[in-house]
Design a protein around this nucleic acid. Structure first.
Ligand SMILES: [Mn+2]
Ligand SMILES: [Mn+2]
Ligand SMILES: [Mn+2]
Ligand SMILES: [Mn+2]
Lengths: 158, 158
DNA sequence: CAAATAGTTTAACCTTGGCTAACAATTATT
DNA sequence: AATAATTGTTAGCCAAGGTTAAACTATTTG
C-alpha cells in the first residue's frame, strides 16, 4: 500500500473542492443526468423539425441530416422512432409534420433553448459560443435554474 | 431542393424565436454536443475516483457503484476501459489509483465542475438543485463561458 | 420521354453503457 | 476454523445511436 502522497486533510478544508455529498444525494445527481440523456436527442429532433416547419414551411429528412451533420440513414431510423412515439407523422418522400404532442414538445424545448441562449448572451458570451454551449446545456437545466436565468436576462437587457 | 446553399434569409420571421443558423454553424452545435457525450462518462468516473481518493483515501468499485447508482458489473466493465485508456491502475480487491494522466483529467474535471457549481450558487440556485444541474451542465460549458462564470462568481461573493 | 440526380429506406454492422445471474475471492463474524 | 457477508468479475442480454452500402422512389433536366 503506497501511502505515498496521502491527503494531509488540510485544517482549512476549503483548499480544494467541496466535500463529498451524502451517497443518496450524489447518486441522484448522476441519475438525473442519465435520465436527461434518454430524452435529449428526441427533444433536439422534435425541436429542429418544429423550427424547420416554422422557418421553411417543411421539414425534410435530408435537411435534418445536414443540419445535424449525421447520415440520412440515421435520420430515417430516428424518424421511425419518433413516429412510434407518436411525435411526428410522415408519409414517404413528403415533409414531416408534428403531432399535437410533438408540437407541444417542440414548443417547450424551443422555449427552454431560447432562455438558455439568451441568458448566455446576456452574461457576455459571444454568440457562436453561446449557441454551441446552449445546445448541450439546455437539457441539464432545472426549472428552478431556468426561472433564475430568465429573470437575469430581463434585468440585463442590452 | 434542400438548404444546400446559404440561407435565403426569410423575409420577416421575427415573430417567435431566433432564425435558423447557417447549416454549417448549426451542424457544429450538434457535433460539439456529440463529442462531449463521448468523454462525459469517463470524466465523471475519473473525477469521482479522484474525489474518493482525496476524501476517503481509497476508491473501491463498490463505492463508485453506490455513488453512481449503477450495478457493480457496470463499474467493473468501466474500470477495465479506464485501465485500457491508461487513466487508472487497479489490482483486484484493492483500491483504484489514478495514473498521471488520470490525475490530470480528474483535476481538470473537478476544477470545471466547481466553477459551474459555484456559479450556479452565486446566481441564486438552491444548493441541491445547483449540484444536480452542475453534474450535467459541466460537460457542455466552453472555456470562454467558464471564464465568464468564474469572474461572475468572484464579483458576487456573499 | 428517358436519363440523371436527389431523396429515402433498408440491411448489416459497430460501440457504449446499462442490466441480471452466476461464480470467485476476500474479509468479517461467530 | 467454518461460515457468512461483502466485494469483484464474467457471461450473456438489450437498446440507443452511429456508420456504409445498396436498393428504391421522385423529381428535374436533356
Ligand atoms: Mn435545443
Ligand atoms: Mn440540444
Ligand atoms: Mn463532474
Ligand atoms: Mn458530470
Amino acid at each position: 500500500m503506497s501511502d505515498h502522497e496521502q491527503p494531509p486533510l488540510p485544517p482549512n478544508s476549503r483548499l480544494s473542492g467541496d466535500a463529498l455529498p451524502p451517497v443518496e444525494q450524489h447518486a441522484q445527481q448522476y441519475e438525473t443526468v442519465r435520465n436527461a440523456h434518454e430524452t435529449e436527442l428526441i427533444e433536439d429532433y422534435v425541436e429542429l423539425i418544429g423550427d424547420l416547419l416554422r422557418h421553411r414551411g417543411e421539414a425534410r429528412a435530408a435537411d435534418i441530416a445536414s443540419r445535424m451533420a449525421v447520415s440520412q440513414a440515421t435520420v430515417s431510423k430516428m424518424i421511425r422512432r419518433l413516429n412510434e412515439l407518436g411525435l411526428v407523422t410522415s408519409r414517404p418522400y413528403r415533409s414531416l409534420f408534428l403531432t399535437e404532442e410533438g408540437h407541444k414538445m417542440a414548443e417547450t424545448s424551443r422555449a427552454r433553448h431560447d432562455i438558455v441562449l439568451h441568458f448566455l448572451r446576456a452574461l457576455g458570451v459571444r454568440d457562436n459560443t453561446a449557441r454551441i454551449d446552449a445546445e448541450g446545456m439546455e437539457h441539464h437545466v432545472s426549472d428552478e435554474t431556468l426561472a433564475i436565468m430568465r429573470r437575469f436576462t430581463e434585468k440585463h437587457q442590452t
